Amino acid sequence: MFIDLSDKTAIVTGATGGIGLAIAKGLARAGATVVITGRDQERLDAALARLRDAAPARKFRGVLADVATAAGCKQLIAAQPQADILINNLGIYAVRDFFEIDDDQWEEMFQVNVLSGIRLSRHYAQGMRERGWGRIQFISSESALNIPAEMVHYGVSKAALQGVSRGLAKVLAGTGVTVNSILPGPTRTEGVATFLASMAEARGVSTTEMEALFIKENRPSSLLQRFADPDEIANLCVYAASPQASATTGAALRVEGGIVESIA
């Protein structure tokens, strides 16, 4: 299958590292002009350099904006008024005891993980609808289906994304604009690597051993039996953004290694 996005412009939020950067790289290699966002200029510049190394013939642009806020979303929209592909990847997670998650932490989780994507989709979907083509993705998580006891607020925010995605797909029915949520499982990003390293140090094991222990203890139903690489998540996202995925909309697309105990 040859995916050609050479006439498309894609926005990927939270793309200075991890899954977002991998998605941006994959879209660029398929020919898209890629716009990424970040809150820190140094990290944004470093991400752009990595993208140019990975796909030197492609066009990239960075927008310095905190799209977890309404003001940051307005900054991005002003800098890039239209797009053909929107990947709502920005997200945070935090391990917290449920009884210690206060209102401010719940609010922050929803502002970053849910409302950022809603605000941007509300704007960019209108242009896509007018042009009769578009792709919107919300990066959810297997935690939306298997709410983790150690971070209930995170799981709930990711479940909300699936609701938004399905609802928006209905709003855009028959317009040529597809909307899907993507459900990764445990993925070996920079942030996760740091998290695992701290756990490994506390337990006196290597990071590699800690990865295996994490899967065994926290995701025992995994069929993959390992952490995914960000590029493995990006591969599905690139396909879902392609013309070939024109009949896939309103779906929760799982790339979680078989963790979810369901055949549906």
Rank of each mutant, 00 (worst) to 15 (best):
V164P: 00
G31K: 08
A241C: 15
A212N: 05
P148G: 04
S121G: 15
A160Y: 02
N235Q: 14
D7V: 13
R131S: 11
N180D: 04
V12P: 02
D103A: 14
T16Y: 07
P148L: 10
G191D: 08
V255C: 11
M199F: 10
Y124N: 02
K158F: 03
G127R: 01
G72R: 06
F2V: 15
G134T: 12
R122D: 06
A54M: 03
G31D: 11
D66K: 00
G185M: 02
A32H: 07
D7M: 09
I139A: 10
H123S: 09
T248R: 00
W106D: 02
A10R: 03
H123Q: 06
Q75V: 14
I263A: 09
A197D: 13
D102E: 10
M199K: 15
T248L: 14
A10F: 02
K25M: 11
T16K: 05
E108N: 10
R131V: 12
A57V: 13
I182Y: 05
E217D: 11
F227L: 13
G185I: 06
P243T: 10
I85E: 07
C73A: 15
V34N: 01
S141L: 01
A24S: 08
E108I: 10
G91D: 02
V156A: 09
T187G: 01
F227C: 01
G62F: 08
Q75T: 15
I263E: 08
E107V: 06
R131Y: 02
L223Q: 13
G176C: 09
A252N: 14
D7I: 11
S140V: 15
T13H: 08
T13L: 11
A234Y: 08
G72L: 08
D103M: 05
R50T: 14
G20T: 11
T175S: 13
G31R: 08
C237P: 00
R135K: 15
Q126V: 14
T178Y: 07
K216L: 09
I3H: 03
A15W: 11
A144K: 03
L64M: 13
D66G: 01
E130A: 12
G155D: 07
D97S: 04
Q41V: 15
A247N: 04
F110V: 11
A32N: 06
F2D: 13
T178I: 11
I92M: 14
F138E: 04
M109S: 15
L224A: 13
P148K: 03
A240M: 13
T208N: 05
L183Q: 13
A251D: 04
V95D: 15
I139P: 06
Y154P: 05
E107S: 11
F138T: 04
L27S: 04
A241N: 12
D53W: 00
I85W: 08
D104S: 14
R166M: 14
I233G: 00
A22N: 05
P56T: 10
A78Q: 10
A149D: 15
L196W: 04
Q80V: 15
M210N: 02
R188F: 08
A169Y: 04
E217Y: 00
G204K: 06
R50P: 01
W106A: 03
T194N: 09
R119N: 03
R39Q: 04
A193T: 14
G14D: 11
H123N: 07
L115P: 00
I85G: 05
H153R: 01
T249Q: 02
G163C: 08
G167R: 07
L213G: 01
V152M: 06
R219N: 10
A49Q: 12
E130N: 01
T187Q: 03
